[in-house]
């Protein structure tokens, strides 16, 4: 049997978290079972939304996605509540623990896709070309490109910036022509795409922790032998951790390199971060409560899980 594994990141494992995760997944599954794994990196089969719907149709079996998950399983968007996770290890503890399992179970029922493991795309940070941002007050009047996702528009608005939804492919052009003053992304993404050359200041506020989801078509999964299922489950957990490690590596390297190339990087203090959280969280939470309806309970479940893990 053949597993088709698809994602939108480059194949290269040293610079791409999903590329690394997919490759180690392939190596383990092929080495320890009689299954064959075919990789489709770099969006060869389509963007994340398309990958998800292909997996639901059984055209592919395993997909690694980040942002697309909350579109098919709205409860997953609670992970995007800004300033929820103060560190990556805290996020790992929550996602690998009871909360992550429950969310996976819930999304499985909604989508037919089983979350085998969580990887990470990383903490997102603000950059801009105008001034150093230490507190939300510094964001006043600056135009930030955001993904065309309502939650991000709420968040940037609540922080005092002007949110401007622009497609990813148009971003470099928008930054260089001054259509927007700033943007927000994980450090690895900023460095790998040369956005630091178009921007002068970065603030490591880590507003959103973006997780990766390793998804498998449950129909396919249930049709496998128990031994094969076990290998796939193990390979996925290793892959998720590999993706996290590569992402951490890229962030660490990226922060040094953007500074070498002249960008000013600021790490906010605990009090300053609290000010960001106080400004952004209430607006986003109340927006999400309305948007999620019955699923709003996931907001409280996440906050409880984070509180428990922080102790």
């Amino acid at each position: 049997q053949t597993l088709r594994v698809a994602h939108v990141d480059p194949d290269d494992w040293t610079g791409s978290k999903k590329g690394a995760a997919a490759q180690i997944f392939k190596n383990i599954v092929e080495g320890e079972s009689d299954l064959t794994v075919e990789l489709f990196p770099a969006g060869a089969l389509g963007n994340e939304d398309e990958l998800v719907s292909q997996a639901q149709d059984g055209l592919t079996q395993v997909v690694l996605v980040s942002g697309a998950m909350s579109k098919i399983c709205p409860a997953a968007s609670v992970l995007d509540i800004p300033y929820t996770f103060s560190s990556a290890p805290l996020a790992w503890e929550v996602l690998d623990g009871e909360f992550g399992d429950a969310l996976a179970e819930h999304c499985l029922e909604q989508t037919g896709l089983r979350t085998l493991a969580y990887g990470e795309t990383g903490f997102r940070n603000f950059t801009n070309s105008e001034r150093e941002i230490r507190t939300p007050a510094d964001m006043e009047g600056l135009k930030f490109r955001v993904q065309p996702i309502p939650l991000y528009i709420e968040m940037v608005g609540a922080l005092g910036g002007e949110p401007t939804p622009i497609a990813w492919t148009e971003l470099p052009n928008a930054l260089s022509t001054g259509v927007v003053d700033g943007q927000e992304n994980p450090v690895g993404v900023i460095y790998n795409n040369g956005l630091h050359k178009l921007q002068q200041y970065m603030t490591l506020d880590g507003h959103v922790y973006a997780a990766d989801f390793l998804l498998i078509s449950d129909e396919f999964f249930q049709g496998l032998e128990p031994a094969q299922q076990e290998v796939i489950q193990k390979a996925a957990i290793v892959a998720g951790n590999m993706g996290r490690s590569i992402q951490q590596w890229n962030t660490a390297e990226g922060v040094t390199k953007v500074q070498d190339e002249g960008m000013q990087v600021y790490s906010p203090t605990a009090e300053e971060l609290q000010a960001f959280a106080d400004a952004a969280q209430p607006a986003v939470v109340s927006y999400l409560r309305e948007e999620l309806g019955d699923d709003a309970e996931w907001i409280d479940r996440l906050q409880d899980a984070v509180a428990a893990a922080s102790e």
């Binding site: 939304d49 579109k71 065309p148």
Partner: peptide
């Protein structure tokens, strides 16, 4: 029909 509900961002 399948994906028509997705928002056209702009």
């Amino acid at each position: 029909m399948r994906r028509g509900d997705v928002t056209a961002s702009g």
